[in-house]
Structure formats: structure tokens, C-alpha cells
Design a binder for these strands. Structure first.
Length: 221
DNA sequence: ATCCCGAGGG
DNA sequence: CCCTCTGGAT
């Protein structure tokens, strides 16, 4: 995508949503970290439903360790991959207590060293909690970047580097959220809603999907 | 490359 | 039914 088009692309997304925020609910940085870990291959809405009750009881790594593995599993049973996630959250909480004085480190490498925290999760925490200009490439951003031509690559890391290189100020801090929201609600995986997309004219995606038929399809004979 | 694994949507 | 959802560890 041409440089001028990239700027216009972000300008429109920013105009439509001046102050984008995470849809994950949390009351402090530790809870945010836990919510992001739980959000892997799960919807934000599903994570919020489970953490509502959990975060009323647990607000610190110490409290998470005290809660224990089995009780944590009960809380997050409705989320996919809950067994692995519960184990990681307990181990991560223990590591924060042991190595970071119970605080969440404002450091990408230190975050990535925590159990269950990879590059994408670390980038999200750095961006949302600490205001870093990171580009966490999830399933949405990977798809939107490749589909639109904004940032193409075969792996999430390749797309992240392209985004970092291509994204100008003043859009760098919130680029992550604008692209996520665009991917979640408009540039969807299954059936992108190109007919109501505000950047469709800048997009490389050829088969622009038409609006759905208003009339119901006839019942099978 | 494969496993982890549940809810919601089309 | 099948696919998708802010992935990470082996």
C-alpha cells in the first residue's frame, strides 16, 4: 500500500474511533495480564464473563496463588484451553511473586519470560498497560494486514515488522486497537462486510463482498 | 507440525 | 454441522 494511502487508512479508522480501548475488563495491570493470557483463542466477551467473578476475589499475584489451581479452573472452565491457561496463570503468579516483587514488569523480555506469555501477549500488555508503541499481531491483525495490503507477511512476526515500519505518527500508539476492532467488526474472517467498510477504496482485497440480501432465502422444497 | 479446548455464530 | 475467537509451548 502506498504511503499516502496508509496515512489515509489510519486517519479514517482514527476518525471513526478517536479513543480505542481494550474490550477486556480489568481493574489493574495484573488483572489485565491475566485477562490477556486467558484471551488466547477465545473471545473477549467470553473472557470477561469469567473474569467478572474471578477479579472480584483476586487482584494480586499473591491472591491468585492463594486461590489455587482447582479453584481457578472452576472460574475459567467456560473458556477454551482452560486447563493449560489455569496452570500458566498460577505459575505466572508465582513467578511474579518470586522474581518481580509481585509487580508486573514494564519490560517486553521480562514479560515474555513468564509462563504462558509469548510475544503477542507481551506486546499487548506493553501497549495497553505501559503505553508502548507495540504492534501485537493476533489473528485479526494478521488477516487485516495481509488482506488489505497494509502489511503482508507469512508469519505474525513478519507482519509485526512491516506494521512497525509502515505505521506513521500520530497513529502508532493505537494502531493495534484500530486494526483489531476493524478486523473484529468489519473485516471479519468469514464474511468481511466490505459494503460498509470505510477504507474499502484503499484496500487490495479484490472480491469485495456484496451486502446480504434483505429478503429471506426461500425454504427448501 | 501438533496439542491444548469451550462458547458463539453462520 | 463447521469455523472462529486479541496463542503458547513442545
Amino acid at each position: 500500500m502506498k504511503k499516502a494511502d496508509v496515512f489515509e487508512f489510519y486517519r479514517r479508522l482514527a476518525e471513526a474511533n478517536p479513543h480505542p480501548e481494550t474490550e477486556l475488563e480489568s481493574g489493574n495491570v495484573f488483572q489485565l495480564l491475566v485477562a490477556v493470557v486467558l484471551s488466547a483463542q477465545a473471545t473477549d466477551a467470553g473472557v470477561n464473563k469469567a473474569t467478572r467473578a474471578l477479579f472480584a476475589e483476586v487482584g494480586t499475584p499473591e491472591q491468585m496463588v492463594a486461590l489455587g489451581l482447582d479453584a481457578l479452573k472452576q472460574h475459567i472452565r467456560t473458556i477454551g484451553l482452560f486447563n493449560t491457561k489455569a496452570k500458566n496463570v498460577i505459575a505466572l503468579s508465582e513467578a511474579l511473586v518470586a522474581d518481580h516483587d509481585g509487580m508486573v514488569p514494564a519490560d517486553r523480555a521480562a514479560l515474555e519470560a513468564l509462563p504462558g506469555v509469548g510475544r503477542k501477549t507481551a506486546n499487548v500488555v506493553m501497549n495497553v498497560a505501559f503505553g508502548a508503541e507495540t504492534f501485537a499481531v493476533d489473528t485479526h491483525i494478521f488477516r487485516v494486514g495481509n488482506r488489505t495490503g497494509l502489511a503482508r507477511g507469512k508469519t505474525p512476526l513478519a507482519v509485526e515488522r512491516k506494521l512497525d515500519a509502515a505505521t506513521p505518527q500520530p497513529f502508532r500508539l493505537h494502531a493495534h486497537h484500530w486494526l483489531i476492532l476493524h478486523g473484529r467488526y468489519v473485516c471479519k474472517a468469514r464474511r468481511p462486510e466490505c459494503w460498509r467498510c470505510i477504507v474499502a477504496d484503499l484496500c487490495a482485497f479484490k472480491p469485495k463482498t456484496p451486502p446480504p440480501k434483505t429478503a429471506a432465502s426461500p425454504p427448501p422444497a
